[in-house]
Every structure is written in C-alpha cells, then in structure tokens.
Design a protein around this nucleic acid. Structure first.
Lengths: 203, 203, 203, 203
DNA sequence: GATGAATGAGACTTCATTCAT
DNA sequence: AATGAATGAAGTCTCATTCAT
C-alpha cells in the first residue's frame, strides 16, 4: 500500500461515520461543485442534522481535503499497482492508462472532486496535494521515456504526450458516463489505443 | 458572424458597461468557480457598488448565461472560420484543432467558465448551450469521417477520436498556462500532431 | 459556618469532581464572562470531554448558581467572622473592611463572578443570592450606625458611606491585581484608611 | 471638543442609522452583557432584519469598539471640560468628581458597557481604549498631587485615593439606579464629599 | 462517571437581490 | 445608471444538552 493508513488517519476521518460523510460529500460536490454545495445538503443527504458533520470534520474545507487526499492516493496507487516496471513500455503504458482511465470512469464523482475542486483547498493543503499530482504525472512521463529509449515508442514530444494522456484521463471524469460510453472498461480500451498512437508505439 | 448580433442583444448586454461586467465576471468565475463567486466581488473588481450589476444583468445566472453564450459562439465561430471544407481532411483537422486548442489557451479564463460552469445554468439556458456544444463536436466528427472515407485517416473508433480531440482542447483551459507551455501556438502545434496520430493520419 | 452544609449539598456539588469543575468554571467565567464561556471550555480546561460536566451540574446556570452561592457565603462568612461586635466601631470597621477587601483581592476570580454575573442567574436563584447580598451590606451599615451613635464616626450620609465602602470592595475584583497593587493585604490596609476617613472616624 | 468628530468617523459609524444601532446595542449590551447579546436582538429592537446591522458595522466586535471608543471619549471629555486647571485643587476635585460620577449615573447603560465589556475587544482595539483610560485616571491623580503640593489635601496614599475615586465612579454604573439613589446629581454630591474626605481635604 | 457523536436551536455573517435616492 | 441600505434567506459553524456505550 503506497499510502499508509496512518498518514490519512486522525483528523481525516477513520470512523465509519466520517466515511459515510465523505461518501455523501463526494456525490454533492461532484454534482454542484464545492462552492455551491452547502454543508446542510451533505448532512441532509444522510438524514443528519446540519451540525452532525462537525464532530468529524472541523470545516467544510477539511472535508474537501480529506476527500482530495484519499482520492489522489487512490489514483496514484491504482496506476502504480498496475505498472509492471520490468515489462516492455507498450505493456506498461497499456496497463497504466487502462488503470488511470478506468479509475476516472468508475469513480467519476470522486474524480471530479479530485480534479476540479483543488482551488478551494487551503494553501497548505493544496501544496500537499500538488506533490501527489506531480508523482502521478511522472509515472506516465517515465514510461514514455523508457519506451523511447528502448525504441518501442517514437513520441514527437514526450512531455506533450504525457500531458495529453493525463488530460484524457482527467477529462473522462467531466463527461462520463455519456450516451456513447458508459462502460469504464470500454473507454479505457479505446483510450489505450489512442495513447499508444500518440506516443508512436511500434506495435 | 455565425451568431447574429440581434440574438445576443437585449438582456444579454450590448452596452459597454455590460461588456466590462462580463469581462470582470469571467476572471472571477474562472478563478473561484461560479458557485463560490459573489456578485459583490464582480462589482468590487470594477470599483462598483454591489447593486451596480443589476441594471445590466437581472440575475447572477443571466450573467453566466451571457458569458457562456458568447463564449460558445466564439469557439464555434473560431473552428468554423478556420475550416476549409473543400480541403483534404488532414488540412482541415490541422486547421480546426489548431483553432480549437489555441482558442482554449488564449481565452483560458473564458474557456474555463464555458466548459466547467454549465451545471449552474438554468435548464432552459442549458438546453440552448447544449445545442451549440453539439454543433462544435460535430465539426470534428465530420472531418474525421470525411478523412476516413477518403482513406486519409484510419481511426480505430471515430467517435472516440472525436471525443478525445475535444477533451484535449477542453482540458487545456484547466491547466494552461503551465511551466512547460505558455504559448498558445506551441500547444496547438503539439496537439495537432497528436490529433493526427490519433486518427491514424497517413501523412 | 452560617450556611449549613446540607443546604449547599446535593445538586450543588459536594464531590471532588464537582469542586474541580467549579474551580475551573470560576477561572473561565472570570476571564471571559459567563455569557461568553462555553461548557466545552470548562471541560477542556480539565481535559474532560464536553459531556463530562453534566453528571455534576445539570445546566450551565446551575453551575453558576453553585459558584455564586458558595462565593456569597464565603464573603459573608469572612466579614462576619472578622467582626467583634463588642469592640468599638473603629476596630470593627477596620476588621470588616480588611476582610472584605482582602477577600475580593485574594479571590478576585471568584469575586468577579460573584459580583458581575448575577444577571445570568434564574429569577429564583437570583432571589436567594440577593438576600445574601443584603445581609452583607447590612454589616457595614450597622457598624457605621453604631459608630455614629457612639460618637466615634461622623458620617455625612450613612447609606452613602456604606454603599461606597461596598463599591470599593466590589471594584477591587475588577482591577486586581494591578501594577501598583498586587498584595491583598496592602490594598486592604489602604482601603481601611480611606473607609475610616469616609465615615469621619475620630481616630 | 477633545475628541474630534473625524477621529470617530469612517468605519465607526457617522450615519444616523449607525447611531441608532449603537444606541440600541448599548441598551442590550448593558442589560445582558456583550457575550450574551445576539446581533439579532439588537436588530430586532430596532425592527430591522438580522443582516441590517452589517452595512454599518462589519462585526459585533467593531460595534462594541465604536461604542467603547465613543463612550471613553465622552467620559474623558466630560471631566476635562469640567476641570478648571487654574482653580484650587478642592474646586477642581469637586468639579471633576461631580462630572465623573454624574456621567456614570446619567449614562449608566453606556458606562456599564464602557467599564465592563473591555475584555471582548480585539487586542488592537483594547490597546487604543486602554490609552484613553490611562488619560482619565491621570486627571484625578494630577489634581490630588496638586492639592497635596499646595497643602490643600493630605492624602495618605495619592495613588490609592485616585484609584478609589475612579472605582467609586465606575461602580456607580453597576448599581445605578437603586432604591436609595436615582438622581445623578445627588449621587454626585454625596460622592464628592466622600472624595474630599478620602484625600484629606482641609475644607 | 466519563465519552463523544448527535441534536435542535441558534449564533454571526454573507449573499443575491431590491429600491429609494 | 449607479449607490448603498435593507431584506429574507441561507451559509458555516457553535453550543448546551442528551444518550448510548
């Protein structure tokens, strides 16, 4: 486990009640945006009184932070766990893009909060999250570089390709599900093909 | 001009003051999100009193709508104007992706509002905007189809490719400018190359 | 002891824990005022949980009442115990003013609660306390009257003098300790001199 | 006028509405204490909506500060205006104590706020107020010193006498009006006599 | 006896909007 | 058109108190 439980514990909510509140908040934040969500709505969606959130999260922002931290850990864990670093780059890119895209589709509500509500974090919390995001990007960049070095990939611009792959994944959380795509695995499969083409994969 | 002046006029704000308010609102909406922005902030950023917005826009939502409508018209106009429908598909895709991506980079504040604040529109306004968005997507779909028919492109899945190209453009407004990319034309150029690869362009 | 133990017992808190809570409450009430003090603060200052006060005091007001009652009994006891009713008035005034002033200085936190938070008592509790206060005032009035009758004192207005002496004592709890005076006995000594002059003591 | 209007203006409320709010707040603060008073009560006592206070005072504390500042200026002005610095000390003490005591009786609600709610001010505001209070005390100290130097007064301890005189005045706001005393001028007259005795006035 | 989550009420404050000026 | 006080509703958060554990 990349993110040790202990790091997320304490004020971030380990109790069952805290987890339920987080889950409820994810749905509402995703639907209306953090700024337009009231703590009352979150409580009401669990049939709780308005103040019941506060024994678990001292502020609305700390709730967002807990969600954001958990979410970012989850994505990073997902792609790191899927990456077989001793396989050829093509396999690695396939595995990680699949994991990344499928995660954003499957957890689209959480993903939306994770990807689009960062600006509402406090400066301190934002800094911690920003570090996690850099770690995530780096995974793709490293794989493309490895593929290019091995002659498996022929990217025109490694950085642009890595950015585009990330963008594709992030943006899934904005529109998923759509009329055309409502199966996370299908989206992942299509996007893997596009990713391989973007990096100029030989296969 | 695709959108006739008259359609945008009236309550949508043709006066100079209305335009200034729109411009100010774009910046604040982009920075904090519609839900977290107060009408007071918009007024204050123009050194106006809280009530000064209301002679021009009856509600905060109508201000968002005016911005959204103007923005969506602008993107659609930008790609339509750049599209030479009698050229080969490769040239067309190059021209339209360039226009689309560069527009999102150059107008990143407006683009962010346009792309991420839709959910705050009234149902009626949302419907009107949704039509414009479909028109925009269709431009890319048609070009890819034309390229495939002509044998210039070899997409694995036309719809997925069109979606991905749109996603790439939309997502530019989320991160632009970054340390690596702060020139709209450079981003556009890189993304055109990626788009051509995604559609399996022969060239 | 004027107040029989039994009258103060029961709901007023005889246990050690109740006494600790009262002591903690006195400090916080004195520092911030009853209205601005939360029961949580009192509990927290003893490292107890928010609910821990309630097994001992059913309401915040009953805690104030217990403190107020104990405090008023204490002052009354202090001056009564110091008063030698068979001595000359000068000695009696000296003894009682010393006791009164020193008590307010020494117990300035409790005194502040006792003197300034009466309005937050329930009507019933206020009535009980008001009786105690009248008994206290009467001590000074009686002494001055006795002194005047004996020709030891020459007050211009007995009631005003008694009131002023009380005021001086009460007000000590507002400012004590100050830069100039931080020894209760010194304050008491000075104020006795002033009191004797106010009543026109011959000596 | 010692306190120039301009110094109190601006955020402190010069408008008629601000003055009405201040007047209403004084009554409620005096009756229940600042900590126990709600901004709603203040607004309600003027038949205003809860939010109507806020265009005039940004916070409850700033309202307290405005009241406190105005009140402290008023006391200081009252005693300074009554002091004829070229008269003998006896006359000066008579005039200033009269002014001080009568002010506390006549404005007992304001005086109570001024004297007993200081602890609720912000540190910055408290500092400003504390300066004003020192200026007030100094008036009495100087007069007693002058009287002592001229041989008019024979105080045992100048500082204690000045402190006691201040205490007497302050404490008036706690109990005034009482059954015995409800005329400010009568209280003032009695207290002047006591003050003169306390300083050992020859007359 | 103590804990701490939960409640119901309510606190301070803000907000979109209105309206007299 | 603009101002700014005012409103009514609501927002975040706190609080005295309760209660299951």
């Amino acid at each position: 486990m990349t993110a040790p439980r202990s790091a997320v514990a304490g004020e971030l909510g380990t109790s069952k009640a805290a987890a339920r509140i987080r889950a409820a908040a994810i749905e509402v934040f995703a639907a209306k945006g953090y700024g337009a969500t009231t703590t009352r709505e979150i409580a009401a969606s669990l049939d709780l009184s308005p103040g019941a959130v506060y024994p678990h999260y001292k502020t609305k922002e700390s709730l967002l932070y807990a969600i954001s931290l958990e979410g970012h850990h989850a994505v990073l864990t997902a792609i790191r766990n899927s990456d077989r670093t001793d396989s050829p780059a093509g396999k690695r890119l396939t595995a990680t893009v699949t994991a990344y895209v499928a995660w954003h589709a499957r957890n689209h509500a959480l993903a939306r909060v994770v990807q689009y509500e960062l600006r509402s974090l406090s400066d301190e919390h934002f800094g911690i999250i920003a570090d996690l995001r850099r770690s995530t990007s780096k995974v793709f960049t490293r794989i493309i570089e490895a593929g290019a070095a091995a002659g498996d990939f022929h990217p025109i611009d490694t950085e642009a390709a890595a950015l585009a792959i990330t963008s594709l994944g992030v943006d899934v959380s904005r529109w998923f599900p759509s009329n055309a795509y409502s199966d996370p695995d299908v989206v992942a499969e299509r996007y893997v093909e596009l990713a391989l083409r973007m990096v100029g994969s030989a296969s």
